[in-house]
Design a binder for these strands. Structure first.
Lengths: 204, 204
DNA sequence: TGTACATCAGTGAACGCGCGTTCACTGATGTAC
DNA sequence: TGTACATCAGTGAACGCGCGTTCACTGATGTAC
């Protein structure tokens, strides 16, 4: 253990991890730089070597959250358009359910306003892009209505985002019935977006 | 002005109003009992005559928020089922856009957890009820699919809630194009929920 | 109509707390020659 | 291979702040008789 007194060596990473743990357990309001430093056995100002201020730390957490969400969405099988869209919806809601406090931080709006952290905005966009690509894909295959892409995407996003929020805030029936709820709701929107004549996927 | 030194006479109400003003301008995080008392020219402990603690005050604000939302939803014309559903969606999103910080408090989840304030939960339910009634109404008139009411309602709610959140957090295109976006999205969900054979409203 | 008294709605002072951030500093590391 | 020196990553102390809440209290109001 080359843990010399000075030069912790891994402070940036460990601070991130510890803050993430606190966030998960107690929400972003519970994250303070002083407490964090205490937990890491380090003086508070040391953290300022790695994070400009408290908000920057939170932004970093949110960024890695968006990256994780993006990975989940990318992992969805894209072969069948219909299954892909439902799969994206399920993956999205599953992420929110698994990481409620992280999700709240990412989309809270209050804590991390748009525009203040360019890398954060970018990470959010990158995750959103996967959803939009999936919709565009479905549309190109003639599977979705000819409505403007932005409209279809906004609808899909609103739906999964709203469902996520309502779920993690306990407004909807227990989490046991929630996955099929998500699937059912997504299907509901989908069937509305399907051209009547083209409700079969062209085989690859 | 019977504003005697003691006995402010209207402290409860004025505290509510002042707190609401602060909430609107700066969000719930900016509400503190001490600052509030200062603004009202009253000692801080005086507020404890009217509110058990800070959180109770926030709960009161959220309650009146739900009441206001409910009124807006009740004001929607219910004659035509399709128009009613779209109207509810528009009214809902308009409320969020007009009162972003209040809306965040009502649905933040972090600040006011479900179950802690019975009257708050009740007020939330009462607002939700209007939406559910509208959906049930549409279904009874044979206008909506025979899917479970809870599913249809959850879908509608998720959609408008998600759209509201994304809108007030600036994730969607400018607020200028937003009303037609809301209408378009709601219609998208609706057309998916419409039985193909019954897309005309029985005339009254 | 007057009065004793309970109750209500305020006050001022204080407790105890933790926070973000800055400052001048020191010890460790890496690099040029 | 050794050494001067810049740079990096920490330290401890302190500033200044505002907060929620409790305490023992006092002044005003309302009510029973």
């Amino acid at each position: 253990m080359a843990r010399t007194a000075y030069h912790h060596g891994d402070l940036s990473q460990q601070a991130h991890q510890q803050a993430l743990a606190t966030l998960r357990e107690q929400g972003d309001g519970a994250i303070s730089l002083r407490a964090l430093a205490r937990q890491l056995g380090v003086s508070a100002p040391a953290l300022y070597r790695h994070y400009a201020d408290r908000e920057s730390l939170l932004a970093e957490l949110a960024i890695s959250g968006f990256q994780a969400l993006r990975q989940r969405l990318l992992a969805v099988n894209q072969q069948d358009s219909r299954k892909a869209l439902i799969g994206i919806g399920l993956a999205y809601v599953a992420f929110a359910r698994d990481e409620p406090n992280l999700y709240r931080l990412m989309f809270g709006g209050r804590v991390l306003p748009r525009g203040a952290h360019p890398r954060l905005d970018q990470a959010g966009l990158a995750a959103f892009q996967v959803l939009e690509d999936t919709v565009a894909n479905g549309q190109q295959r003639g599977y979705l209505k000819a409505a403007p892409l932005s409209l279809l995407t906004a609808a899909a996003w609103s739906l999964v985002h709203g469902l996520s929020q309502l779920t993690i805030d306990g407004h909807l029936p227990g989490p046991d019935s929630e996955p099929q709820l998500a699937a059912g709701i997504t299907a509901l929107l989908l069937d509305g977006s399907v051209e009547r004549t083209t409700n079969k996927e062209p085989s690859p």
